[in-house]
Design a protein around this nucleic acid. Sequence first.
DNA 1: ACTTGACCTTCCAGCGGCTGGAAGGTTTAC
DNA 2: GTAAACCTTCCAGCCGCTGGAAGGTCAAGT
Lengths: 145, 145
Amino acid sequence: MQAQRTISRIAHETGVSARTIRFYEAEGALPAPARTASGYRIYGEADVRRLRLLRNARLLGLSLPDAAELVRQALASDCSAFAPELARRIAEKRAEVRRHITGLRELHEELVVLEQHVTHAECATTEGRRVSECDYCAGVTEGGD
Amino acid sequence: MQAQRTISRIAHETGVSARTIRFYEAEGALPAPARTASGYRIYGEADVRRLRLLRNARLLGLSLPDAAELVRQALASDCSAFAPELARRIAEKRAEVRRHITGLRELHEELVVLEQHVTHAECATTEGRRVSECDYCAGVTEGGD
DNA sequence: ACTTGACCTTCCAGCGGCTGGAAGGTTTAC
DNA sequence: GTAAACCTTCCAGCCGCTGGAAGGTCAAGT
């Protein structure tokens, strides 16, 4: 376990760009790390873990301040005390993700149909007509409410 | 067919806020509509159709300029001439949507497991330990690469 | 010892896509 | 005739980065 890592190394390890890590620090979402004599940021295992937590919270769709707060709580609370709040958030997020998936599935279906239409026969029947006048094209674009 | 509609009416019909419609117009993504003597914007059927197309292109994830360009092409080209480019975009978008869905499914799975963990028994085995020290919690947060 | 090139630092600016608020004119309903 | 609900413009700010400039540092090669 070699704890000493520069910003680009932790960036590579966590998949968060160095630039974004500095931004997170400036925003107070990450604590200021240790520095070398010459001012380079140096990170340890704990920082990696924290940054990964933060990144995942962001991927869950939390705003940066919310994500930072969650991480703070997560790292400060004991596991069981933290559970109810965390469970609530997870359940919420899960429902949201499910809705999102449903929406995307519908979109995907629409795209499949639209693609077939466009690449194959049906469009020929409307040859020479503008898309704005093609019932099919128009119909598809109106279904999105 | 009553073609005269104010901005809030077309907003309601298309699900795009009046504010956003004005923004689209200012950005050149929508043409300037007719005005009443007193300066109120008035919209017709064609504007509704165009705005719906634009909104859907945005929902597909295209940037506003790209979406506007697509709509412009769609309304200017005849259906068959437009097909190849459109088909390409649709296929691309479809692949992207599929990837997105897959990612969300994985996330959902992770959330289900995490939720069970947090709300039920296992966490008790780590009672009193910080989340940062709980192998399970930590493990889950590391899986997201 | 010197250079090269890849890193690191800070700072300020801008992006996309809205959204919010102020300050005022118009229309409609009672 | 007045109140509420519209409409107009304008400028400002939001979030989460991202880009670029200008300069310091470090490790390797010659």
